[in-house]
Design a protein around this nucleic acid. Structure first.
Lengths: 249, 249
DNA sequence: ATTACCCTGACGCTGCGTCAGCGTCA
DNA sequence: TTGACGCTGACGCAGCGTCAGGGTAA
């Protein structure tokens, strides 16, 4: 799974992109496979796949392929930031789509009813339709500026270590049976909250995903870093500690 | 409101389209203004605006401008059908977007957590992203076939008359104070339900819009066809009748 | 006379689709 | 040997963006 290198056709099948598109991305230096067979066949590995996802997110955000390449080559664009931006946009879009639905429902109702259909209704509907497709370019600079201050890879690695450390610390207190009200535990709970907030960017949906992820893949983590770093036994303990410290306020 | 003819610039402003795009649509015979000033300035009136909306809906459905023109010129494509198809697609899209959101949330969570990010997750995410953009062409034939059996303008006009007639009939019974359980009223309720179903295509959201529309624009209808055809007094009466006939089952 | 539109060409661009002609892997 | 897949050009195309050069409406 981790080491498999995919040929273009395989990658195309699994992603829904066309072979031609992947060729094109290679040609313009956007996503270049890091390996080739002796005969020159492209072999795509994990980093390129990640990059590919980034490219598609940026394109959805309204960037041209050229702009996407620039963004990805400047190192101040972290993958995490890109995914978050994409998420934000998607949510806005869903809202826009809902509004457009309402307008179309209104139009549909007017057709069947005996009411004279006003041109104004159509104009407004068209405006909403174009808004859905637009509203990109105006805000792009804003986006780019906002992401300047985003995370680099080293910071990310540091935060991951912080997690491992914090999990181990909490685990220790838990195993000692330290009561939830103890000052030590409170301090840990505070750190926990802060780290969650940093990791998720304050997004509650991402937080839910994080929980699901840990519950599902805790084995992997435990195997990777050692049993002490398995987050699962720790999560409930922290949840209880946080609840307790809230109650005592 | 009804008679105003818009110049390109005005239309562009109100719709969010560019002047160039409107010029282009004119060039290729897709949306041609029916009027011009003596000096050759384009003047867009209501029918063109409706057509413009249709064009944009069809484009959102994945048709090329050429295909859109063909559709609109064959008379078996009713505006109502187009709006309904667009609605259906939008709803599917919202669902897709939600799924994509979940995938992106999962990705975002993986970045921050210590878990090894698997390439497979990225592949799946990319697939969902391309699905959102695709899933058009495969189903287009299906759509086109489905819309062959759709409403023409005369049928639509007939249904509008049916509404006026039905409303008048119900109004008469209501004014006579006929009880809700009377066979006559039941028959009317049945016709009412059928006509609603036809008008809305069975879509509950469109039905809500229809109600809102009638409540808001009843005056207009009354003024247009005479007081007897004001739907508002009739709607509650019918709702009660329908509820009554359900209870007695 | 100015300013803000409008017109009609005409060329340019992005992001691939679509052959063509030829190697290669199982 | 035979498909199914891969490679590299090269051209084509939709849907406009973007000047250029000139008329017009208030």
């Amino acid at each position: 799974m981790h080491f498999e290198a995919l040929k273009v056709g395989e990658l195309a099948k699994r992603t829904g992109l066309t072979v031609r598109a992947l060729h094109h991305y290679d040609e313009i230096g956007l996503v270049k496979p890091s390996l080739h067979t002796e005969s020159g066949h492209r072999l795509y590995t994990a980093p390129e796949i990640v990059r590919l996802q980034q490219v598609l997110s940026l394109r959805e955000l309204g960037f041209s392929l050229d702009e996407a390449r620039n963004c990805l080559n400047r190192s101040d664009f972290s993958p995490l930031a890109v995914v978050r931006m994409h998420l934000a946009r998607l949510r806005e879009r869903i809202e826009c789509h809902r509004k457009l639905c309402e307008r179309l429902e209104s139009l549909a109702a007017q057709f069947g009813a005996a009411v004279e259909v006003s041109a104004d209704e159509f104009l407004q509907t068209i405006e909403v339709m174009t808004m859905v497709a637009r509203y990109f370019t105006p805000q792009q600079l804003e986006l780019i500026e906002a992401s300047r201050e985003q995370v680099g890879d080293e910071l990310l690695a540091k935060k991951q270590e912080e997690w491992a450390e914090l999990i181990a610390l909490v685990r220790a207190e838990k195993d000692k049976g330290t009561p939830l009200e103890a000052a030590k535990v409170r301090a840990l709970a505070k750190r926990w909250i802060e780290l969650v907030s940093w990791t998720t960017g304050g997004d509650p949906e991402i937080e839910k995903s994080l929980e699901r992820l840990w519950r599902a893949q805790g084995d992997q983590l435990a195997a990777q870093h050692g049993e002490k770093y398995d987050p699962r036994p720790v999560m409930d303990y922290m949840a209880a500690a946080i609840a307790a410290s809230k109650n005592s306020e």
